[in-house]
Design a binder for these strands. Structure first.
Lengths: 204, 204
DNA sequence: ATTAAATTCGACGCAGTGTAGACTTTCCGG
DNA sequence: CCGGAAAGTCTACACTGCGTCGAATTTAAT
């Protein structure tokens, strides 16, 4: 590993490189849609961004690093959006709002989110990023469950463990639905919301 | 594609090739544990099975084909086991039995099942196999839900859609837990069983 | 205008895949 | 028990894609 990788912390002023870097990530995202991770070559990305392979390696150390950066960019977005969502104390409203937001997130970033999930195993960096994101959701779900009267704690039938299972249910259900259509996503959302409400004891 | 691939339908009598074929799949499974799919090379598999790369390509057309065959073998096992499990009409018992069986399956075949899930996207053959397997589970869950009194139908809040979501919850929860330990798997099972029971309206 | 940093390029080496064709072993009917 | 076909095996090769190197060129600041 040479002294390359000045990919981080460039000037505050907008240099040509910042533009290129964004072009690379955008191209990567587009190619991911068209061909998928495996079929997408570093040459493809470089070409799409209007530079050569050699130049791309000035910005990123590897194909994995490119995708990791793309995931990081997207995940950043998720966190922002999540923070921005109005919080409410009323569990039913909180659940509805959370599901609504989740639909929007998957609508906009479904592809990158699916990619992140797929690569979590093989690219530790991405696994880290995604599991951290999941933790945020799990924590949020836990709070809602407890507020709705589910016993707090980490035992299998208490709020924390249930929140984890519900999170995975939502992740996987949306993962599949987002491959289909927006309509499927909406239906999936209804179903998940329903199970969440039941699990919280808010409907019988 | 040449006239290779006599991998299927060999003699009824046990030929040397059948033995080799099994050795290849066994080695593949072992290597999958040690290094994971990407790091595992065709050379590694061949070496482990005591043959050269060239010889391996006599049995399987590609690395993906090897793994697909391994998944197929494992999935076959799952189906057998599922058929063999005693059926009961009492929902509570049915759920408990199903979860118990699921724990056993993930204990024994967790690695291959995780691999199948990971490769579902990139290897259509495997995706097919796994989605068929999931359908079996979804159908089974649907039956239990309906028997427990959940309204039948495919709308978002009816049995079929709920069964799908519950199936994904179980898949993903076990996927993660099986990477940890048998204990985690047991806890995960309790949690999933609990949510399933609540969703079926069998406990409040 | 000069100098250092930023950026780009083309060429190279390496690893891994899949293919080709020759060679050996095993199977079986006469 | 022998001869040819089928089954199995090997070495060598072509191709693709990744990551690296060093030289050339552009850009920015002094």
């Amino acid at each position: 590993m040479p002294s390359h990788h000045p990919a981080r912390s460039r000037r505050a002023t907008e240099r040509k490189g910042d533009l290129r870097e964004r072009a690379i990530l955008d191209t990567c995202e587009a190619l991911l849609t068209q061909k998928g991770y495996d079929a997408m070559t570093v040459g493809d990305i470089a070409q799409g961004a209007g530079i050569t392979r050699g130049a791309l390696y000035f910005y990123f150390g590897s194909k994995q690093e490119v995708v990791t950066a793309l995931v990081a960019r997207t995940v950043e977005h998720l966190w922002e959006r999540s923070r921005a969502t109005a919080q409410t104390d009323e569990p039913r409203q909180a659940i509805a709002a959370a599901m609504q937001r989740t639909v929007e997130l998957w609508d906009e970033h479904g592809l990158v989110m699916r990619t992140a999930i797929d690569l979590s195993l093989t690219v530790p960096e991405i696994g880290e990023l995604w599991s951290h994101t999941a933790d945020l959701f799990i924590t949020a779900i836990t709070v809602v469950l407890e507020r709705a009267g589910v016993e707090a704690g980490t035992e299998p039938e208490q709020a924390s463990a249930m929140a984890r299972a519900l999170c995975w249910m939502i992740e996987r259900t949306f993962y599949h639905a987002s491959q289909e259509s927006h309509e499927e996503l909406q239906k999936a959302s209804s179903t998940c919301e329903h199970i969440w409400l039941i699990s919280a004891g808010l409907i019988t």
